[in-house]
Each structure stands twice: as C-alpha cells, then as structure tokens.
Design a binder for these strands. Structure first.
Lengths: 172, 172
DNA sequence: TATTGTTATACTCTATAACTATA
DNA sequence: TATAGTTATAGAGTATAACAATA
C-alpha cells in the first residue's frame, strides 16, 4: 500500500495509542514534534526568529534591523575600513552591501569616503548622528533585549549559550 | 566634525592603540567584532547558517532541505492531520505550504487525501517511499550531522544547548 | 591581470489579500 | 458567516556574472 485509499485508512495506520505518548500530548490539539525536538537546527532556527523579532521590537524607536545594527557596531570598532572588509566580516556579499550602505548613508548614519591611497576603495565612517544612534541602540539592546534573555536563562546559562553558539559559528 | 574631510582624518580618529586590544587582533587583518561577540542574536544567526549548511551537505544524497525534512518527520509523527495543522505547527504560512507540498507530492514522498468528514481539508499522508526516504534521512542526520555537533560540543553541552534554544523558542 | 564598488538579475523565504469550495 | 486550500503578488534576503575605474 503506497498511498492509503481513504483518509480513514491513513489515519488508522499508526495513530499513537493512549499512554504511549512521550512528549507533547495529542489531546490538547497540539501535534507531536517527535524527533524534531531533538534536532538542533530546528530549535536553533525557531530561537533565532524569536530573538530577531524581539530585537526589532526593542530597537523599533530607532528603526534599525539586526543587520544594520551590526554594521554600525562594526564601523565604530573598525575605523578606516572599506566596504569589502566590513561586508565580508559580517558574511554579507559585496553586491548586497551596496543597498544596505545606501540606506544607512541616506539616513546620514555613515558615509563613504574615497581612500587617498587606493582610489578604488570607499573608507566607511560613522557620522556623529550615526554614533549617537548607535549609542542609543546599544542601550535599548542591553537594557530591554539582552536583559530579557539573561532573565529567561540566567546569567551563567546565557554566557554558556553564547560561547557554544560562537564555537559552532567558528568551528563547525 | 560630522564627516571627516579626508579618509586619513577618519582613520586616525579612534584607531585602537597597541596593547589596548581586548579581543581579536588587528595585526592579522581580522576586524574587531567588539560588542558583536556579546550579542546573542548575532551568534545565533551565524551558528544557524552553519548548522543548516551542514545539514544540507549531510542529507544531499536525498535532496532534502531542513524544512522538507521537518515536514516528513511531522507527518510521520502525526497521521491524519491536514495542511493547516502541519503548516502552523512548523511556523509555515498556509499559502507558502502549498508549493512545498507540491514539491514533496511530485516526488511521491507524501500525498494529499480529501477528508471524508470535511471535504475542504486535505489529510496528509506519507507514502511508503516517503517513509523510506525519511528513514534514510534520519540515519544521515543522526550519524553525520548531529554526531559532528555532539563531538564538537560534548554530549552534555549539546543537550544543554538544545534545552536553552527550545526554551527561547517557547518562552521568549 | 586583479581588485573595488557597482548594476543587473535571479532564486528563495516570507507575508498579505482575495478567490473557491465547502461547512 | 467562517474555514481549508489555493492563487497572485510583493518584499526581504541571498547568490552570481559582468562592467567601469583603478591598481
């Protein structure tokens, strides 16, 4: 039997028997995640979506996405770098970085400056406004976003989580 | 000074002084991630990309994406469910689930069956081929994909990571 | 010849409105 | 009227090729 002839056939094939449940119940209408709960990639993705969602909420007054925030942060930490260097550090492809920079530059948060030593490069600089917005964003992220995460997990777990994720990003 | 007049001006504003470095060096050409390394969402995203990349590699012989694998797994665990139930459990919007199912059904991995009790619903069933592919996929995932993750982190850390991510996905 | 920034383009994901057939 | 599946569509995000200016 490749395909059951009726939906009733399909349903009775392997319906879980009462008392056989190992995880989420089926009586409350919730579905069994089964081995999905043991799949790291699945929880990783669902958690990432939740965290980005909360980041956007917390930083909404400043209208910054996680990606934009990471660019501003990196520019602040690394003055004198060009587009290729900033983009590749963040895993952004150079062509896709152009529109991102256009958006930030049109809001006067950063600026492109022709390098004197290599006139092909654009050195990226934060403007004063960019630094001010970054400072406010950092406070919102620390006090609203990260604070909630630390509260949920506990400070030690939060630190351990961060370290494991960084290890995966680095070494996996 | 909102925007430095020359790139040289910009570069000298706040270039890190030797001995002042707290994280990644600047001498090897790597950029300073700075507070980015403390931002959970950043590491979460980078780790998630790495994990999905590896998943695709490991399961390449079966040509399954993480999303497709999660659908097959869920169908196996929850016979007799319709499209809306499966899609919403996975956080997939119903309109977007249609093309996904079309692809799986055209490969004869699953089938839609009109429900006898409610002729609007499509009950989803795994075919025998779908069950066979799922079984092979599970082995590849367990033996190649998850095994490498457990090796990298250690079994206890892997379990702790999974639990924290699930907690974030559930409660954050 | 190689590299920087750029344009064009395409493919995947995600999101919303609206249709149809059933209830 | 409400719901299930569907279509159409639009917007992000991501990927590659190729061009102009410069090295």
């Amino acid at each position: 039997m490749t395909v059951p002839k009726t939906a009733a056939d399909a349903a009775k094939v392997s319906r879980p028997v009462a008392g056989q449940d190992l995880d989420a119940s089926s009586d409350d209408g919730l579905l069994h995640l089964g081995e999905l709960s043991g799949l790291l990639g699945y929880s990783l993705k669902r958690a990432q979506l939740k965290v980005f969602e909360d980041f956007l909420r917390c930083v909404a007054p400043l209208q910054l996405t996680p990606a934009q925030f990471s660019v501003l942060l990196l520019l602040d930490q690394n003055p004198g770098r060009n587009q290729t260097e900033i983009a590749s550090t963040l895993g952004i492809l150079r062509p896709n970085f152009v529109a991102m920079l256009d958006a930030l530059e049109s809001r006067e948060l950063c600026a492109r400056m022709r390098s004197a030593s290599d006139r092909r490069s654009h050195i990226l600089v934060l403007t004063d406004k960019g630094r001010a917005v970054l400072a406010r964003a950092k406070k919102l992220v620390a006090n609203k976003h990260e604070a909630r995460l630390i509260e949920l997990l506990g400070p030690e777990n939060h630190a351990a989580l961060l370290e494991m994720l960084a290890k995966i990003a680095r070494e996996f």
